[in-house]
């Protein structure tokens, strides 16, 4: 009898597509093995025991059997479904966004416990945050640091002189913010104002609990998003589908209110987190 090798994996489902009659191929990010693809047999049948446990963005404990090309999912038990992502199209789209980032940047089989933790915490925060936009930008900044593309925000990306607060020029090509002297030499400079610059620095250096109640002015949001999307696009050399989708969604949102109904989002801010709301978290910036 051949020995079937079984192993445990703690995973987050990034992507899935249908395969064959009733199977699905899942792209998951695991704590133990990094990004891998596994085949989940029979999960499209309505009575499948595994189906509900391996929906997109669930945090799940898996048992995997070694297969010829791909590992085969033999058991699955959900750890967290992040239910508040699922009743809000905008939060869901940001979840797609961070899953797509991980899927695009990661190679198969390169584990990073920090990436796993960041992904997990960010999905949870996307459900809890006042503004999921902030969580998406936080994820981008922290994730880019983890994979070695940390944008320079404290010293010039070109000549390494310390940057003064105030308006700044962000360049994806240079690798972050450049000093006024170097700003003349970059071709893709994006001028960002003091508020946007401070937000970028804040998100890059703070822990996730602090950002849950951060709400940004529309102008600041636009600049922060433009800078980071430009940066991601520069390194991936392609546009993310979730970004295009979000832009389409924003056009529709002019006529259709996409915010979830009050009933669907009970206010469950605990006392500890509520304390953050009183002060402006940006005031204690470096």
């Amino acid at each position: 009898m051949s020995r079937v090798r079984l192993q445990k994996a703690e995973a987050i489902v990034l992507k899935r597509h249908d395969y064959g009659e009733a199977d699905r191929i899942l792209t998951v990010y695991t704590r133990q093995q990094g990004k891998i693809t596994v085949i989940a047999k029979g999960v499209r049948r309505i009575a499948s025991r595994k189906a509900g446990h391996v929906e997109l963005f669930t945090h799940v404990q898996m048992m995997l059997a070694e297969g010829r090309n791909m590992d085969v999912l033999t058991q699955a038990e959900m750890i967290d479904a992040f239910p508040r992502l699922r009743d809000d199209l905008v939060r869901m789209t940001y979840a797609y966004h961070i899953a797509e980032l991980v899927d695009r940047f990661e190679q198969d089989g390169h584990p990073s416990p920090q990436t796993f933790q960041l992904l997990r915490d960010s999905l949870a925060a996307l459900g809890d945050a006042d503004d999921p936009f902030v969580v998406a930008r936080y994820f981008e900044l922290r994730y880019l640091s983890l994979i070695g593309y940390r944008p320079h925000l404290f010293e010039c990306a070109q000549c390494a002189t310390a940057l003064e607060p105030g308006g700044a020029v962000f360049s994806a090509e240079a690798g972050g913010v450049v000093c006024p002297a170097c700003a003349r030499t970059v071709s893709d400079g994006l001028r960002i104002d003091d508020a946007a610059f401070r937000v970028l620095r804040f998100l890059q250096t703070r822990e996730i609990g602090v950002i849950l109640h951060l709400v940004l002015q529309p102008g600041t949001r636009g600049q922060v998003e433009q800078a980071l999307h430009g940066f991601v696009r520069h390194h991936l050399e392609r546009e993310l589908r979730s970004v295009e989708f979000l832009n389409g969604l924003r056009r529709v949102a002019r006529t259709v209110d996409l915010a979830p109904s009050a009933r669907a989002r009970p206010d469950t801010v605990d006392a500890g987190a509520g304390a953050e709301r009183s002060g402006d978290p940006l005031s204690e910036l470096p």
Partner: peptide, 17 residues
């Protein structure tokens, strides 16, 4: 599924709008 739920949610909003 996630996609089906998102679609249902969107239709609800579109009809109410």
């Amino acid at each position: 599924s996630l996609e089906g739920d998102a679609t249902a949610m969107f239709i609800e909003r579109a009809l109410r709008a």
